[in-house]
Design a protein around this nucleic acid. Sequence first.
DNA 1: AAGGCTTAAGTTACCCGTAACGTAAAATGG
DNA 2: CCATTTTACGTTACGGGTAACTTAAGCCTT
Lengths: 320, 320
Amino acid sequence: MTASRVLRGEGGYSEDTRIKVMQQVDQLGYLPNRLATVFAGDQSSTFIGVSIPDLGNEVFAQVLEGIDRKLGTFGYQSVLGLTQHTQEEEENWIRTVLSWQPAGLILTGRYHSPRATDMLRNAGIPVVEIWDLNSSPLDMSVGINHFDSGFDMGRYLTSLGYRRIGYVGTSHDTANAATERLNGFCKAVEGAGGAVVKQLCLHDTATYYPGFYGTEQLLSAARDIECIFFQNDAMAFGGLQYCAAKGLRVPDDIGIAGWGDLPIASVMNRRLTSCHVPHLKLGQMAAEMMMGRLTDEPVPTCTDIGFRLIPGSTVRNSGV
Amino acid sequence: MTASRVLRGEGGYSEDTRIKVMQQVDQLGYLPNRLATVFAGDQSSTFIGVSIPDLGNEVFAQVLEGIDRKLGTFGYQSVLGLTQHTQEEEENWIRTVLSWQPAGLILTGRYHSPRATDMLRNAGIPVVEIWDLNSSPLDMSVGINHFDSGFDMGRYLTSLGYRRIGYVGTSHDTANAATERLNGFCKAVEGAGGAVVKQLCLHDTATYYPGFYGTEQLLSAARDIECIFFQNDAMAFGGLQYCAAKGLRVPDDIGIAGWGDLPIASVMNRRLTSCHVPHLKLGQMAAEMMMGRLTDEPVPTCTDIGFRLIPGSTVRNSGV
DNA sequence: AAGGCTTAAGTTACCCGTAACGTAAAATGG
DNA sequence: CCATTTTACGTTACGGGTAACTTAAGCCTT
C-alpha cells in the first residue's frame, strides 16, 4: 500500500521505505496494472482509438504516423482500427474500442452510422473527425474541404483549355471524401463549359495497377478525352505508365492529374499535377487537438489544414 | 446480475427477463466495461501490442495492415507503437503496453534491450518477432533471412559481371535487418571477386529523396562504380531519378538494384531489380501465429516467409 | 511531562463484471 | 400430494490500485 505511494511518488513515506519498495519492484519485475487504475475510475486511460480506412494508401499511413508519434510524446497509445471505408465496420470497431474505456477517439471521415453517432455522443470522451473537414463536428474536426479541392482542380484544368475530361477512381461508400472531390470537380468543369465525359469507378483498391487498367478502360470507352483526373496520385501514376506503354505523350496527347502528392513525386523527373495535403501535419494536429481537450486547454473545434494545388507538368502549360 | 447472464447469453434466465434487460440496455445505451472483465482475471484482453519502426516505409505499413486485418477477424485490436528502430523507444513502449495487460505482442526485429527481454519473458504472454527471422526467438518468429537475401542479390549482381559496387542506405541501430542484408551482400560480392567500394549510410529516412541525393554523393565520391545496391526500393527509385536527371543511362552506364518490391513497381515501364517479400502475408502470418498460440493450437515456432529475387531490367542482362 | 502537531504507515471501501454459491419458486415424478 | 429436480434469479467475494480515513510513532512546545 505504501508501495503505491512510492511508485507514484506522491510523498508520505521515508527514504528507507522507498528503497525497500524499489528493491522489491526490481527483484520481482513488478509492472503496475494500469487496468486497475483506470477501472477504479481514478483516472482515464491513455488509449486513443484511431480509425483509418486502410494503410495500403500511403496517405493514410502518413496520417497515422503523425497521430501516433504525437500521441506518443504525451504518453498515449493508438488503438488501431482499419475500417475499410465502411460505416458498418466503423460502428463495430467503435463499440469494441469504447468498451476498453479509451481517453478519446480519432475517426477518419464525417459520416457515421446513427448508432455509431449515438455511442460517440454517450461516451463523453473527446472525438476528432479527420480528413474530411466537418463544420459541425461531433466534437472536433481537422482536415480539408474536399469539395473545394476538387473544384480548384476542375477550375485549373478548364483554365488550361481542357473541355472533355475523364475521371478514374474507385467506388466505396458513396459519401466519402473522394466523392466530394469529384462533385466539386464536376461542378467547376461544367461551370466552365467543359464536361466530365466519363467517370469510371472501379471496384478495386485505389492503387497503382487499378489506375493503369482504369485508364485503359476509360480511354477505350471515350477516345476523345483530353485530360484525366484520378482519385489519387497512385492511380495517376498507373495512368501515366499506361500512357507511356501505349506511346501516348503526356501532356501533348493527354493530360494527367492526380491528388494527394505522394512522396515519390519529389524525385520524379516530371512533376505530377496534383494537390498537396500536409498528411503528417494533419495527423499531428489531430493528436494535438485531442491532447488539448484532454488537458482542458481551449481547442479550436474545426481546423482547416489546407491544401495546395500543384500545377505540375503532366497537363498542358496554358490555355490553347 | 442477471443482466450479465443475458448479455453473455450463457442461459439461466427467462425470455421475459431477457427482453426487459435488452430494453434497459438499449434505453441506457449501456456498453459493457471490458476493463472490468479483464481486470477480474476471468479472461485476457483482446489487445495485441504491435511495434513497427515507422510507417513512412510502405513496407511496414503493409505489414501492419496484414496484422491488423487478421487480428480484426478474430476480434482483437492492435495497440500501435512506432519505435523508430531504437531499442530504447521499444523498451519504453513495451513497459507501457504491458501495463495494459495485452493478450500478446508482435515486435519488429530480433534485437531488444536486456530489460525489454526480461519484461517479455516475465509477461507470460505470446510474443511474435517479425521481419528478421529469428531461429531462437523469445517465443515465435516469422520473417525472412535478411543476410541470405542480401547474399543472393550480391551473387546475382556479380554473376552479371559487376565488380565495383556501391551501397546507399541509412544508418540507425547497427544491428538491424538492412545491415544484415548489407553484410550478406558484401560477403557474396567479395566472395565473387568484386568489391563494395563505397557504403553510404545517410542520417536520414530511407525514402525517395535521400535515395536521390545519396546517389549523387556516392557517385561523386567513387566515379567508377558500375552498380548500386540500395537499402530499399524507395531509395532505388530516388537513385533511378538521379541517373535520369544526370543523363546516366540505366543499365548501360550504371546498374540499380533495390530491395522490397514496392507496389509502384508493378506499373513502372522498367522493372526495378529488387527482392520481393510478401509483406501483407508476413503480417497475416504473424497475426495467425499469435491467434494460434492464444487458442492453444500447435503453432510453428519459426516461419520463414521467403523472398524472391526480381531480376528486373535496371541491371545488365548477363555477364560481360 | 502532558498535550498538540507532524510524519509514516496501515485499513477500509470502491470501481464493474463474473465465478461460485445460495435460495425460492416452478416443474416433474412417483 | 409430497419429495425431488430444475429453473430463475439473488448474494457474496474477488481482482489491483488508490482515495479517504485511521492509527501509531516521533517531535516539539511550554
